[in-house]
Design a protein around this nucleic acid. Structure first.
Lengths: 205, 205
DNA sequence: CCTATGTTGTACTGCTAGTACAAACTGTGA
DNA sequence: TCACAGTTTGTACTAGCAGTACAACATAGG
């Protein structure tokens, strides 16, 4: 199944919108064949089934995200700055590929049951954030938090849901500027919080 | 389909774990029949199919969450305090029902394609938060943000993903104390942010 | 021109959701 | 006790789709 010929791979993207719209179950293999122009027999020659189609598409998306985020966090800036850059990078890729995102949400359950994908998902989304949190505590550009893992999960959720929801609401005309707008809002939230200036406190009693 | 007899309704919960584990597609109606003790013919007498089983379970979960959150935000406290209470309430219900949560993630796509559920989902999760943001800006207990809708989506994402991820990681022995712990971490994040004290600034140039 | 590998149409199998229906059971009201 | 409505359940059936089998054909490298 690895080493899918490039031509087929690119045709396969034609199935993303279909899957995004109806879910994988609502999509017949025959529909995918028709939408991509790849005959059913050929699909089965290269792929192991419907799930493999989804897996191929999502692996790709996750690799794009992991790649973009990877570049963003590799700079020499402070962790705080890198966090902001990473947020923008992740949202950028997501908004650039709304159909893939919608397919991902729609079949999240299946995705998390595909072992390779679950790993890719963690690597693309969660781990970079966790790393930045650690770095930030070390270089002083981010506050030390009580429960870094819970906070990383929440940040991951904030970014991802915002991106997903933007993707679901409809493909944008200007994905990259929208990504900048959205990520500004998110960075604003996760860096400065919602408490009015001057009221900061330790929440624990 | 409305007015499912109470006895059947309670038996139906026996299917939640199954669906959480394998997804709705991986679960045969016969499996549900066996797990719940409700014969297939009876299931079809009351429900319109597999989707209706999921819809029933999730509607219930969403109503529980909407109810708990509704109570939390109805108090006379400041919006900020109510936000913290609401976070705890939502997480409390989610952690109390890990299988339902897992079923929800797993079949999120299907869920959002069930019109009633999509509405319930918004009402349970998103709208209360948006409301609190407005209230907080009015009563001065929360900062006015540039893009309230994006921020509400992000907060919703932060809470929900944290809860979902806790539910997926495994049922807890002590759901309610875990909910308190988690919601403290989230409130800490969304109220005070990650910037170290004294470095707050407007992010926009 | 021979062989590997890929491509595709066609026909088939097997599984499962959903349906049909008849027989039995339950409670209610007269 | 009976009649009736609603419910319960087993059994048998239909239909649709994923996945398989396979043969004919294409293509390219040596």
């Amino acid at each position: 199944m690895r080493k899918l010929p490039v031509k087929l791979a690119s045709q396969l993207y034609g199935a993303a919108e279909l899957i995004a719209e109806r879910g994988l179950d609502g999509t017949k293999i025959e529909d995918i064949a028709e939408a991509t122009g790849i005959p059913k027999a050929t699909l089965y020659y290269h792929l192991e089934g419907k799930n493999a189609v989804l897996e191929f598409l999502l692996t790709d998306l996750l690799e794009m995200i992991a790649g973009a985020v990877g570049i963003a966090i590799a700079s020499a800036e402070s962790a705080r700055t890198r966090l902001e850059t990473a947020v923008t990078a992740q949202l950028g890729v997501m908004l650039e590929h709304p159909f893939l995102c919608r397919a991902l949400v729609g079949d999240l359950g299946r995705a998390t049951r595909l072992p390779d994908l679950a790993v890719a998902l963690r690597a693309a989304f969660f781990e970079p954030i966790e790393q930045l949190l650690t770095d930030g505590a070390a270089d002083g550009s981010l506050r030390q938090v009580t429960d870094p893992s819970a906070v990383a999960t929440s940040i991951f959720g904030a970014i991802t849901v915002a991106g997903l929801s933007a993707a679901v609401d409809g493909p944008l005309k200007e994905p990259s500027s929208e990504a900048v707008r959205l990520s500004a809002a998110i960075s604003d939230l996760i860096l400065d919080g919602l408490a009015p200036p001057g009221t900061r406190d330790a929440l624990e009693s």
